[in-house]
Protein backbone atom coordinates (compact mmCIF):
# COMPACT_ATOMS: atom_id res chain seq x y z
CA UNK A 1 0.00 0.00 0.00
CA UNK A 2 1.28 3.43 -0.92
CA UNK A 3 0.81 5.94 1.87
CA UNK A 4 0.40 9.53 0.68
CA UNK A 5 0.25 12.28 3.30
CA UNK A 6 -1.34 15.52 2.11
CA UNK A 7 0.34 18.33 3.99
CA UNK A 8 -0.52 21.98 3.71
CA UNK A 9 -0.92 25.29 5.37
CA UNK A 10 -4.29 26.41 6.72
CA UNK A 11 -6.70 27.12 3.81
CA UNK A 12 -4.22 25.93 1.22
CA UNK A 13 -6.94 23.82 -0.40
CA UNK A 14 -6.19 20.35 0.98
CA UNK A 15 -9.80 19.16 1.10
CA UNK A 16 -10.63 20.69 -2.28
CA UNK A 17 -7.55 18.98 -3.68
CA UNK A 18 -8.76 15.59 -2.41
CA UNK A 19 -12.27 16.21 -3.75
CA UNK A 20 -10.92 17.11 -7.19
CA UNK A 21 -8.68 14.06 -7.16
CA UNK A 22 -11.77 11.93 -6.54
CA UNK A 23 -13.64 13.82 -9.29
CA UNK A 24 -10.80 12.96 -11.70
CA UNK A 25 -11.01 9.32 -10.63
CA UNK A 26 -14.80 9.21 -11.12
CA UNK A 27 -14.57 10.90 -14.49
CA UNK A 28 -11.90 8.52 -15.80
CA UNK A 29 -13.19 5.46 -13.97
CA UNK A 30 -16.66 5.77 -15.47
CA UNK A 31 -15.26 6.34 -18.93
CA UNK A 32 -15.64 3.79 -21.68
CA UNK A 33 -11.91 4.03 -22.34
CA UNK A 34 -10.40 1.31 -20.23
CA UNK A 35 -7.43 3.36 -18.99
CA UNK A 36 -8.20 3.61 -15.32
CA UNK A 37 -10.33 1.61 -12.96
CA UNK A 38 -10.59 2.23 -9.25
CA UNK A 39 -12.40 1.06 -6.18
CA UNK A 40 -12.97 3.14 -3.07
CA UNK A 41 -12.71 1.46 0.30
CA UNK A 42 -16.05 1.33 2.06
CA UNK A 43 -14.76 3.29 5.06
CA UNK A 44 -13.78 6.25 2.86
CA UNK A 45 -16.99 6.52 0.91
CA UNK A 46 -19.26 8.51 3.18
CA UNK A 47 -16.99 11.50 3.43
CA UNK A 48 -15.63 11.51 -0.10
CA UNK A 49 -19.07 11.18 -1.73
CA UNK A 50 -20.35 14.05 0.42
CA UNK A 51 -17.38 16.16 -0.68
CA UNK A 52 -17.95 15.20 -4.32
CA UNK A 53 -21.62 16.17 -4.09
CA UNK A 54 -20.61 19.51 -2.69
CA UNK A 55 -18.12 20.26 -5.44
CA UNK A 56 -20.55 19.08 -8.12
CA UNK A 57 -23.16 21.44 -6.68
CA UNK A 58 -20.74 24.34 -7.02
CA UNK A 59 -19.73 24.58 -3.36
CA UNK A 60 -16.27 24.55 -1.83
CA UNK A 61 -15.85 22.33 1.24
CA UNK A 62 -17.35 23.88 4.36
CA UNK A 63 -15.84 23.52 7.81
CA UNK A 64 -17.98 20.45 8.64
CA UNK A 65 -16.75 18.66 5.51
CA UNK A 66 -13.15 19.60 6.30
CA UNK A 67 -13.53 18.30 9.85
CA UNK A 68 -15.08 15.05 8.68
CA UNK A 69 -12.61 13.95 6.05
CA UNK A 70 -9.34 12.36 7.10
CA UNK A 71 -8.47 9.89 4.41
CA UNK A 72 -9.29 8.36 1.09
CA UNK A 73 -8.33 4.78 0.43
CA UNK A 74 -8.53 3.73 -3.20
CA UNK A 75 -7.44 0.73 -5.12
CA UNK A 76 -6.14 1.80 -8.50
CA UNK A 77 -6.14 -0.62 -11.37
CA UNK A 78 -4.67 -0.56 -14.82
CA UNK A 79 -7.21 -1.18 -17.56
CA UNK A 80 -7.67 -4.69 -18.90
CA UNK A 81 -5.68 -3.85 -22.02
CA UNK A 82 -2.65 -3.02 -19.93
CA UNK A 83 -1.95 -0.04 -22.16
CA UNK A 84 -3.72 2.64 -20.17
CA UNK A 85 -1.94 5.49 -18.50
CA UNK A 86 -1.65 3.43 -15.32
CA UNK A 87 0.10 0.62 -17.16
CA UNK A 88 3.17 1.24 -15.03
CA UNK A 89 1.35 -0.40 -12.16
CA UNK A 90 2.22 -3.81 -13.50
CA UNK A 91 5.32 -5.54 -14.66
CA UNK A 92 7.14 -4.60 -17.81
CA UNK A 93 5.58 -7.53 -19.59
CA UNK A 94 2.12 -6.09 -19.25
CA UNK A 95 -0.06 -4.60 -16.63
CA UNK A 96 -3.47 -6.07 -17.33
CA UNK A 97 -5.33 -6.50 -14.05
CA UNK A 98 -2.51 -5.05 -11.95
CA UNK A 99 -3.59 -2.89 -9.05
CA UNK A 100 -2.27 -1.04 -6.07
CA UNK A 101 -3.83 0.49 -2.99
CA UNK A 102 -3.19 4.14 -2.29
CA UNK A 103 -4.14 5.67 1.02
CA UNK A 104 -4.37 9.43 0.97
CA UNK A 105 -4.31 10.85 4.43
CA UNK A 106 -5.10 14.36 5.60
CA UNK A 107 -3.42 14.76 8.99
CA UNK A 108 -4.58 18.36 9.42
CA UNK A 109 -2.99 21.80 9.27
CA UNK A 110 0.77 21.71 9.54
CA UNK A 111 0.86 24.60 12.01
CA UNK A 112 -0.99 22.45 14.54
CA UNK A 113 1.77 19.86 14.60
CA UNK A 114 4.91 21.85 13.79
CA UNK A 115 5.56 22.86 17.40
CA UNK A 116 5.47 19.21 18.39
CA UNK A 117 7.97 18.37 15.66
CA UNK A 118 10.33 21.07 16.95
CA UNK A 119 10.06 19.78 20.51
CA UNK A 120 10.89 16.27 19.39
CA UNK A 121 7.45 14.73 20.02
CA UNK A 122 7.31 11.28 18.51
CA UNK A 123 3.65 11.28 17.38
CA UNK A 124 3.55 7.52 17.98
CA UNK A 125 -0.15 7.54 17.26
CA UNK A 126 -2.65 9.92 15.71
CA UNK A 127 -2.96 11.38 12.24
CA UNK A 128 0.53 12.87 12.04
CA UNK A 129 2.05 9.44 12.51
CA UNK A 130 0.93 8.78 8.90
CA UNK A 131 2.90 11.79 7.68
CA UNK A 132 6.01 10.49 9.44
CA UNK A 133 5.55 7.07 7.84
CA UNK A 134 4.44 8.22 4.38
CA UNK A 135 5.94 7.05 1.09
CA UNK A 136 4.84 10.28 -0.54
CA UNK A 137 4.71 13.70 1.07
CA UNK A 138 2.30 15.72 -0.98
CA UNK A 139 3.08 19.31 -0.07
CA UNK A 140 0.53 21.93 -1.03
CA UNK A 141 1.82 25.41 -1.73
CA UNK A 142 -0.93 28.01 -1.90
CA UNK A 143 -0.13 29.98 -5.06
CA UNK A 144 -2.03 33.03 -3.82
CA UNK A 145 0.65 33.41 -1.14
CA UNK A 146 3.58 33.23 -3.52
CA UNK A 147 5.66 36.40 -3.50
CA UNK A 148 8.28 37.57 -5.97
CA UNK A 149 11.93 37.38 -5.03
CA UNK A 150 12.69 40.37 -2.82
CA UNK A 151 15.97 42.03 -1.95
CA UNK A 152 14.95 42.94 1.59
CA UNK A 153 15.41 40.25 4.27
CA UNK A 154 11.83 40.50 5.57
CA UNK A 155 10.21 37.04 5.75
CA UNK A 156 7.66 36.42 3.00
CA UNK A 157 4.07 35.20 3.47
CA UNK A 158 5.19 31.57 3.28
CA UNK A 159 8.20 31.80 5.60
CA UNK A 160 6.40 30.21 8.55
CA UNK A 161 5.09 27.37 6.39
CA UNK A 162 8.59 26.90 5.00
CA UNK A 163 9.94 26.46 8.53
CA UNK A 164 7.14 24.05 9.37
CA UNK A 165 7.90 21.82 6.36
CA UNK A 166 11.54 21.86 7.38
CA UNK A 167 10.53 20.74 10.89
CA UNK A 168 8.44 17.96 9.35
CA UNK A 169 11.43 16.69 7.35
CA UNK A 170 13.56 16.76 10.51
CA UNK A 171 10.87 14.83 12.39
CA UNK A 172 10.66 12.25 9.60
CA UNK A 173 14.41 11.74 9.66
CA UNK A 174 14.38 11.38 13.41
CA UNK A 175 11.42 8.97 13.27
CA UNK A 176 12.90 6.76 10.58
CA UNK A 177 16.54 6.88 11.65
CA UNK A 178 16.38 3.28 12.77
CA UNK A 179 13.73 1.81 10.53
CA UNK A 180 10.72 2.41 8.35
CA UNK A 181 10.54 3.19 4.67
CA UNK A 182 13.87 4.10 3.05
CA UNK A 183 12.63 6.71 0.64
CA UNK A 184 10.31 9.70 0.83
CA UNK A 185 8.94 11.03 -2.44
CA UNK A 186 8.22 14.75 -2.17
CA UNK A 187 5.48 15.91 -4.50
CA UNK A 188 4.59 19.60 -4.61
CA UNK A 189 1.16 20.76 -5.66
CA UNK A 190 0.91 24.48 -6.33
CA UNK A 191 -2.75 24.95 -5.42
CA UNK A 192 -5.00 27.78 -6.67
CA UNK A 193 -2.52 28.27 -9.49
CA UNK A 194 -5.07 30.17 -11.56
CA UNK A 195 -4.89 32.89 -8.89
CA UNK A 196 -1.13 33.35 -8.84
CA UNK A 197 -0.25 37.04 -9.03
CA UNK A 198 0.93 37.99 -12.54
CA UNK A 199 3.70 40.06 -10.91
CA UNK A 200 5.12 36.89 -9.37
CA UNK A 201 5.26 35.18 -12.75
CA UNK A 202 6.79 38.16 -14.50
CA UNK A 203 9.36 38.65 -11.73
CA UNK A 204 10.44 35.06 -12.25
CA UNK A 205 10.25 35.56 -16.02
CA UNK A 206 7.80 32.71 -16.41
CA UNK A 207 4.96 32.00 -18.82
CA UNK A 208 1.48 31.83 -17.24
CA UNK A 209 1.20 28.15 -18.20
CA UNK A 210 3.69 25.64 -16.77
CA UNK A 211 5.45 23.17 -19.08
CA UNK A 212 3.59 19.93 -19.78
CA UNK A 213 3.64 17.19 -17.15
CA UNK A 214 5.37 14.89 -19.63
CA UNK A 215 8.46 17.15 -19.38
CA UNK A 216 9.48 16.82 -15.72
CA UNK A 217 12.75 18.77 -15.97
CA UNK A 218 11.44 22.03 -17.48
CA UNK A 219 8.42 21.71 -15.20
CA UNK A 220 10.63 21.35 -12.11
CA UNK A 221 12.68 24.38 -13.19
CA UNK A 222 9.46 26.36 -13.62
CA UNK A 223 8.10 25.38 -10.21
CA UNK A 224 11.42 25.92 -8.45
CA UNK A 225 11.65 29.42 -9.90
CA UNK A 226 8.42 30.17 -8.06
CA UNK A 227 9.09 28.21 -4.90
CA UNK A 228 12.75 29.09 -4.31
CA UNK A 229 12.05 32.61 -3.02
CA UNK A 230 9.11 31.36 -0.94
CA UNK A 231 10.19 27.99 0.43
CA UNK A 232 13.99 28.34 0.47
CA UNK A 233 14.61 26.06 3.45
CA UNK A 234 12.42 23.31 2.04
CA UNK A 235 14.11 23.39 -1.32
CA UNK A 236 17.54 23.46 0.33
CA UNK A 237 16.58 20.30 2.24
CA UNK A 238 15.61 18.63 -1.02
CA UNK A 239 19.02 19.47 -2.49
CA UNK A 240 20.91 17.80 0.36
CA UNK A 241 22.75 14.73 -0.79
CA UNK A 242 23.93 13.31 2.54
CA UNK A 243 23.51 9.73 3.66
CA UNK A 244 20.78 10.47 6.17
CA UNK A 245 17.78 8.12 6.23
CA UNK A 246 15.30 8.26 4.65
CA UNK A 247 16.53 9.31 1.26
CA UNK A 248 14.57 12.10 -0.43
CA UNK A 249 13.63 11.18 -3.98
CA UNK A 250 13.59 13.73 -6.76
CA UNK A 251 10.69 16.10 -6.20
CA UNK A 252 7.85 16.33 -8.71
CA UNK A 253 5.61 19.35 -9.27
CA UNK A 254 1.94 19.69 -10.20
CA UNK A 255 -0.37 22.67 -10.59
CA UNK A 256 -3.93 22.65 -9.35
CA UNK A 257 -6.55 25.17 -10.29
CA UNK A 258 -10.31 25.34 -10.12
CA UNK A 259 -12.17 28.21 -11.68
CA UNK A 260 -14.66 30.05 -9.55
CA UNK A 261 -17.63 32.28 -10.10
CA UNK A 262 -18.90 34.99 -7.80
CA UNK A 263 -21.49 33.86 -5.26
CA UNK A 264 -24.57 35.77 -4.23
CA UNK A 265 -23.87 39.08 -2.43
CA UNK A 266 -22.23 38.32 0.90
CA UNK A 267 -21.72 34.68 -0.05
CA UNK A 268 -18.39 33.01 -0.83
CA UNK A 269 -17.29 32.28 -4.40
CA UNK A 270 -18.62 29.11 -5.98
CA UNK A 271 -16.95 26.38 -7.99
CA UNK A 272 -17.56 27.00 -11.68
CA UNK A 273 -18.93 23.94 -13.43
CA UNK A 274 -18.20 23.21 -17.06
CA UNK A 275 -19.73 20.83 -19.56
CA UNK A 276 -17.90 17.52 -19.43
CA UNK A 277 -16.95 15.55 -22.50
CA UNK A 278 -20.01 13.30 -22.21
CA UNK A 279 -22.65 15.98 -21.93
CA UNK A 280 -22.69 16.19 -18.14
CA UNK A 281 -21.08 18.62 -15.77
CA UNK A 282 -17.82 18.68 -13.86
CA UNK A 283 -15.87 21.29 -11.89
CA UNK A 284 -13.81 23.53 -14.15
CA UNK A 285 -10.44 22.33 -12.88
CA UNK A 286 -7.02 21.21 -14.06
CA UNK A 287 -8.07 17.60 -14.61
CA UNK A 288 -4.99 16.71 -16.65
CA UNK A 289 -2.77 17.72 -13.74
CA UNK A 290 -4.69 15.37 -11.43
CA UNK A 291 -4.43 12.52 -13.91
CA UNK A 292 -0.71 13.19 -14.31
CA UNK A 293 -0.36 13.12 -10.54
CA UNK A 294 -2.19 9.79 -10.35
CA UNK A 295 0.12 8.45 -13.03
CA UNK A 296 3.12 9.56 -11.02
CA UNK A 297 1.74 7.90 -7.89
CA UNK A 298 1.23 4.69 -9.87
CA UNK A 299 4.88 4.90 -10.93
CA UNK A 300 6.00 5.34 -7.34
CA UNK A 301 3.79 2.43 -6.26
CA UNK A 302 5.38 0.22 -8.91
CA UNK A 303 8.88 1.30 -7.84
CA UNK A 304 8.04 0.70 -4.18
CA UNK A 305 6.70 -2.79 -4.97
CA UNK A 306 9.76 -3.74 -7.05
Amino acid sequence: MLLVAIVGDRDSGKTTFLGLLYAALVSSGSDKEDDLRFHVAYESLDEITALYQRLMSGGFPDSATKEGIHELRVELGAGSSGHGFLSRLGSRKGAAGASTTIRFTLPGNLDEAAQGFDQGSTFGTGPWRDALDADVLLLLADSTKLAPKAEDPEPGPMATYDGQIDSLFTAIRRWRARGGRDVVHPVFVLSKFDSVAPAVLSAAELEPTPPDASKPSPRAAYAKALLDPNLPRTLATLRETGKARPRLAEARFFFSSVHTKAGAPGQPAKVKLRGGGHGGWEPDYSKDEYLALLERLAEIAAETKA
Binding site: S30, F38, H39, S80, G279
Partner: peptide
Protein backbone atom coordinates in the same frame (compact mmCIF):
# COMPACT_ATOMS: atom_id res chain seq x y z
CA UNK B 1 -27.77 3.41 -21.22
CA UNK B 2 -24.17 3.98 -20.21
CA UNK B 3 -24.18 7.37 -21.91
CA UNK B 4 -26.99 8.33 -19.53
CA UNK B 5 -25.46 6.71 -16.48
CA UNK B 6 -22.04 8.28 -17.10
CA UNK B 7 -23.63 11.68 -16.78
CA UNK B 8 -26.18 11.08 -14.04
CA UNK B 9 -24.69 8.33 -11.86
CA UNK B 10 -20.94 8.46 -12.63
CA UNK B 11 -19.83 7.32 -9.18
CA UNK B 12 -22.04 4.25 -9.47
CA UNK B 13 -20.74 3.44 -12.93
CA UNK B 14 -17.12 3.94 -11.87
CA UNK B 15 -17.58 1.55 -8.93
CA UNK B 16 -19.17 -1.07 -11.20
CA UNK B 17 -16.30 -0.76 -13.62
CA UNK B 18 -13.82 -0.83 -10.77
CA UNK B 19 -15.33 -3.94 -9.21
CA UNK B 20 -12.69 -6.17 -10.69
CA UNK B 21 -9.99 -4.08 -9.03
CA UNK B 22 -11.62 -4.92 -5.69
Amino acid sequence: AEALLRVFVPQTLSQIRGGKVA
